[in-house]
């Protein structure tokens, strides 16, 4: 029995690790989405945190918590730059610009080998312990729980659903969205360094379109109206390819797509939808 558990753990530990890392990116996307901004820029915040963290790990003897903090702050700084440039844009333009930013990020990473290792990337020595991952994700989730229950949470919900009504209630939509982007930057930057440590390697391809796809799919799948949605969605979306590969190896991509389609058709607001829960409770 214990052998079986050990085998299972060996087979799925890395999947679980990546699920948690992806949860940071999904949470970073959820952070802006919950204030009405669809943005893929968390990939760029991840690159900022990932490469800075990698350099600190390779060239300094800083303790891990400080490296995590520095990486999160790198994401925050990047998010504030993005906010200064893009926050004035209408929502769909914001989404497109942030996608362009993901493409630009890769080019910048490729062409600054002194900082990023360029085409060759950077290899990192020690793997990330699962304890750290669990602790940091718990901390992040606690942060989102606090945000949700605060005046910020009430204001963000209002801005997301109807910015002009929110403004007439005295809520400054830009201020709320700036906070949302700051939170997104912190989560993305932290996700970046965790991704780098999990892979023990970072390169221009580490923070690219596939991360944007995974995180947005994770949020849509899990539900974008509660902080647990992205965590759940990231887990499902990380495990799905692994499971599908085991079950239907030849049809893996088709099975993935079909599973996503089914969820979007039957659960358009995601797996976890507080509104549906409230409606069900009201019906009783």
């Amino acid at each position: 029995m214990s052998d079986l558990l050990e085998d299972l753990w060996a087979a799925y530990a890395s999947t679980l690790g990546f699920a948690m890392v992806n949860a940071f990116f999904a949470l970073a996307t959820y952070a802006t989405l919950s204030a009405g901004i669809l943005s893929f820029a968390a990939v760029t915040y991840g690159a900022a945190g990932g490469f800075l963290g990698a350099q600190l790990l390779l060239n300094t003897t800083l303790p891990l918590p400080l490296i995590f903090l520095a990486s999160a702050l790198a994401g925050l700084v990047m998010a504030m730059i993005v906010a200064a440039l893009f926050l004035r844009l209408e929502s769909h333009w914001m989404a497109l610009s942030s996608l362009a930013l993901v493409l630009i990020t890769r080019v910048v990473v490729l062409n600054t080998p002194g900082l990023t290792g360029g085409v060759n990337g950077l290899s990192l020595p020690a793997p990330l312990s699962m304890i750290w991952l669990v602790a940091l994700l718990a901390l992040a989730v606690f942060g989102f729980w606090l945000l949700d229950r605060s005046w910020y949470g009430i204001a963000a919900k209002s801005v997301r659903e109807d910015p002009s009504v929110a403004a007439c209630l005295g809520i400054d939509p830009r201020r709320i969205q700036l906070i949302a982007m700051a939170v997104s930057g912190l989560a993305g930057g932290l996700g970046g360094v965790l991704m780098a440590m999990m892979l023990q390697f970072v390169s221009p391809d580490t923070f690219f379109i596939h991360v944007a796809f995974t995180m947005i799919a994770g949020v849509v799948l899990g539900g974008s109206h509660h902080w647990f949605g992205p965590v759940l969605g990231a887990a499902v979306f990380t495990a799905l390819p692994t499971v599908m590969q085991a079950v239907v190896p030849d049809l893996q991509d088709i099975a993935n797509g079909a599973a996503l389609l089914l969820i979007m058709i039957f659960l358009p607001r995601g797996l976890l939808d507080p509104r549906a829960i409230r409606l069900r409770r009201a019906a009783k």
Binding site: I154, K157, S158, E161, V165, A166, L169, I171, R275, R278
Partner: peptide, 19 residues
């Protein structure tokens, strides 16, 4: 009427209390 989707009656009024 423009209430905020997904909020209870109490939460709507609470949002109005933001200032």
């Amino acid at each position: 009427v423009r209430l905020i989707a997904g909020m209870t009656a109490l939460e709507q009024v609470l949002a109005g209390r933001y200032l």
